[in-house]
Design a protein around this nucleic acid. Sequence first.
DNA 1: TTTACTTATGAAAACGATTTCACATCATTT
DNA 2: AAATGATGTGAAATCGTTTTCATAAGTAAA
Lengths: 328, 328
Amino acid sequence: MYTIKDVASKAGLSQATVSRVINNHPYVSEEKKRAVQQAMAELGYVPNSSAQRLRNLKTKKIAVLVSRIVNPFFSQLVDAMEKRAAISGFQVILCNTRIDREKELEYFQLLKSKQVDGIIMASVENTWEVIEPFTKYGPIIYCNEYDPAARVTRVRLDQIEGGYIGTKHLLDKGHQKIAYCQGNDSSVSTNRRIGFLKAVTEAGITPEPAWMFKNIFTIEDGREIFRKLHALSCTPTAVFTGSDEVAAGIIKEAQQHSWRVPEDLAVIGFDDQPIAALLDPQITTINQFTTDIGITAMNVMLEIIHNPSVNKPQDILLPIRLIERQST
Amino acid sequence: MYTIKDVASKAGLSQATVSRVINNHPYVSEEKKRAVQQAMAELGYVPNSSAQRLRNLKTKKIAVLVSRIVNPFFSQLVDAMEKRAAISGFQVILCNTRIDREKELEYFQLLKSKQVDGIIMASVENTWEVIEPFTKYGPIIYCNEYDPAARVTRVRLDQIEGGYIGTKHLLDKGHQKIAYCQGNDSSVSTNRRIGFLKAVTEAGITPEPAWMFKNIFTIEDGREIFRKLHALSCTPTAVFTGSDEVAAGIIKEAQQHSWRVPEDLAVIGFDDQPIAALLDPQITTINQFTTDIGITAMNVMLEIIHNPSVNKPQDILLPIRLIERQST
DNA sequence: TTTACTTATGAAAACGATTTCACATCATTT
DNA sequence: AAATGATGTGAAATCGTTTTCATAAGTAAA
């Protein structure tokens, strides 16, 4: 393991000069510069990044918090973020919270102990009250999810609009009895429900509590929802779901019970994941332009890191779009 | 930003004592220990990890190289690895190579510059000849993919067996005309093809070159394969594919051309991804126990980091299993 | 010819932790 | 009573960089 000292003595120069060459500082003669570069090449020298970071307090790493990396929405999001980060020479640290409040909190130590330059929260388990004290150690921004109480930049979609247009679509198709599935009580879910309720109330419909479900995430969860609906005396004719996975589960289970989709039950998904176009019937869904969200969020983060004075709270809204297929 | 110095002076003790408390060293009186802990708590002190790492040359980070995190196989693999790593207090750095040789090579600088303690390669773009020089900077192991020339530990599946049992299954169903789709020329693909060829040759069949395809990865690639097959004068009755995504693409496109699966064309997938059980017909596939692979690989890595002397090259083979559904 | 500025270089002081070494103190054994 | 060993503590060296400071030489302006 060679150090800057080895390079310096090999080149017959001081550590300071070697450091200047490494960091492209001015005031180094071409001649010595070449000598240093040759010495570095011959030794196969690479600066020890722990030492560099101890000095300049930069890590070139961004922590990205997601609740479930196996959710295609998140893996696509992380993929986009990593791509943007790599262009600027940054690495992404994957922080998979597994919907665990404690675990999420642990990841904030990364910021405090200077292991990352910033944190992008694409999922949120703790309230802003808990997160806020960490802001003094580095930039924290929200992406997709957020806590309304927070005064930091958030890159997100108009989920109220998403809930509204999805529901409106079902209403336009003539449905009056609409069930509703959401994930946890996040900002995204909450806003979508506001949109849902807005649409149904406008249509003069009172939502049926027995058809409102929470904490529904996976394909299997979706299957169970259908079984629950099926067991009811009065069943809905349409379901609004929070993800294509859930929609897929409901559809498959419905078909296994010989229900026709969309004739007997219309189902709308969310996210426009690959499976949405593969199922039979193809799932009507709402596209979130995941890649754009990821890139935009990473852009904002890198900008803040590069120039902290630009860290003024912004509310960046990206477009959302209904994709009509055959499940409704 | 408080340092160990601040804690020391607040507690009226030396830095050395504070450090001993942090690292749970013996020979610190209970009284001073409490004093230090109280001082740390009051200041909200967290050790600067760059400084710690500069001293003890450990980072508690593992780089995981994958070619496409959006591939469910990889996101599940990374998920499992992260879970195991977190238990031991390690973080995972996501290295998405995007099938780019240069990009993969860049990630090895992480090891050289001491930003990670080890690298798990779940995809491989460069030959072992190129990778080998990095082994002196830290442990490198293969997971799933590997270069046969390498003398390092690899955790993998018997892909020859996978190719063999999948093909044998098609043969047992009476198919004689079998097409074959693979990804790139990786070890996994190569071995699977060996298994495929073994099975067909045993059955006395000569593989048809026009039905052998390479670099097929995505759902869209699968669709295109069907269109190509469809355009041939002599078409196969079955297709062996390298992933469920490809199988899904072929099946959907076939159905759009009014072919029945499996009657007109049998399709077998690989990986047992969630979509495999969702499609109609459900896809016959080969389960790779992705979670087990990830945990096992991370286990091996952590063991090596903890005790480098155990770093003897091993070839760890995990089981593989045919899951028969309706697409064959 | 002086003055002022730019260019070029190295010695030494940071950065914030851990560890070595030296030195106490106290208890136990000879 | 002396010798030995276990326990407890702090000063200072160390890890590998970057940056400050001092200094010197060369060049342009006055």
